[in-house]
Write a protein that binds this DNA or RNA. Structure first.
Lengths: 229, 229
DNA sequence: TCAATAGTGTCTGTTAGACATTATGGA
DNA sequence: TCCATAATGTCTAACAGACACTATTGA
């Protein structure tokens, strides 16, 4: 793909590139990020987002998947690219670019030693760059909640409708109306009931459901003018 | 940002990076892409997407904006990142990564010599990689139609409501109902009428409107379950 | 006068949100 | 028995889509 449009070969061909993977799960009613402790990462004393370089013969996608698996000890239930950050603002002659991926993991996964699920409010302790990466990852995930079975990737195989609604509320960042939520679910026919019920704490037991790939996608109606400015 | 998590420094630090900018406009009822002719690009004999490398001290965003301006001779009305492509699938020891940006330009802009607005159906003539980049750019734009004033960036300062509807129809890829469209526009209060009218061809003259930043963002209603599977 | 386009009013079916009510278990 | 949660039915307001109609120009 030889291109000579602008910049010299020297100025464009060699940059440092890191792939960072923001792994997310839901814990205690909030999104949490998997961070590596000072021992696991090569970092001096801070917790950091799992990341690394592209190995020879590896695509960017491959790299992200490898990093996710190394950090989790298992395969994430969802992985997608969230964008590229940076370039050289500093005086260095070499650009530093990070490609950010967002990954999802079902709730029950316990973190290994030297790793920890950190609730979102606490990420204020991270560097501005790391917070930018997390923001990008969450924005990428939220942008797809309507069209991909994102919420189901954060739940075990069977779940209650209240569980599902809680995940949607976390992802959308706003409360949902219970009756409306269930009606829309029923209309879309994307879950199927099992014969099992689960009793947790006080109230009436909840029926367990399973994700069922939809028969036909509903024709999208209307136009939304949520224009921000 | 020293990280040593995985991969050797040699394998991760040096890759070739190109920033490609997919510039889009609406022409004849379809999206068109700005391509550089063989003379403008360093390419042998094919038309290509404007692109280049990051210069020292430049951020990725800066680079994209510079490339867009060089290709257009003016500033695009909108520019956003669409994602990173590639990595090394080939046997080469060095990864080749392209960061794709999507840019928008109002309709009236005429292309300079050696450049040309190519309607989307004709991009089949391009390489698979280039088509991937264009697909990514369009997907990024379409994903934001509801929330950013994307359509207005493809129109001049004043426009008729039929013009606006045509742009939305191109961006959404489906016909819209005229009365519904106008009702929704009125409810969202994102356009303001001018005192001017424009007569084109046969029918009744159309009133001209101007984009008016919305007072308050409407609370988004409901949940959509457009889940694909 | 006709054809073509702009703009509006009304009706209807769908849906989101509010509210209320029943169901069913644990404390 | 009381309380908490699940699940469901009903009402209403908002809204999308269909249709019809008026308005206004050029051919």
């Amino acid at each position: 793909m030889p291109r000579q449009n602008s910049g010299t070969r020297a100025s464009r061909n060699r940059v440092s590139l890191i792939i960072d993977v923001v792994l997310l799960t839901t814990r205690d009613g909030a999104l949490s990020v998997l961070l590596l402790g000072p021992a696991s990462s090569g970092n001096r004393d801070r917790w950091s987002i799992p990341g690394g370089g592209v190995r020879p013969g590896e695509s960017v996608e491959d790299t992200a998947m490898r990093i996710a698996r190394e950090a989790l000890g298992s395969t994430p239930s969802h992985l997608e690219q969230a964008g590229a950050l940076g370039g050289a603002r500093r005086t260095s002659a070499e650009a530093a670019v990070t490609v950010v991926y967002a990954g999802l993991v079902p709730v029950d996964s316990a973190p290994e030693v030297g790793k920890s699920w950190v609730p979102l409010p606490e990420v204020r302790l991270l560097s501005a760059r790391q917070r930018d990466e997390i923001d990008r990852a969450i924005a990428a995930i939220r942008a797809r909640v309507d069209h991909l079975p994102i919420a189901f990737r954060l739940l075990p195989d069977v779940f209650t409708l209240s569980d599902l609604q809680a995940v949607y509320e976390i992802l959308l960042g706003r409360p949902l109306h219970k009756a409306s939520f269930r009606r829309a679910l029923h209309a879309a026919a994307i879950v199927e009931a099992t014969e099992e019920w689960r009793s947790e704490g006080r109230g009436r037991p909840a029926q367990l459901f399973r994700f069922a790939p939809p028969r036909r996608r509903r024709q999208r109606r209307g136009v939304r003018f949520d224009i921000v400015g």
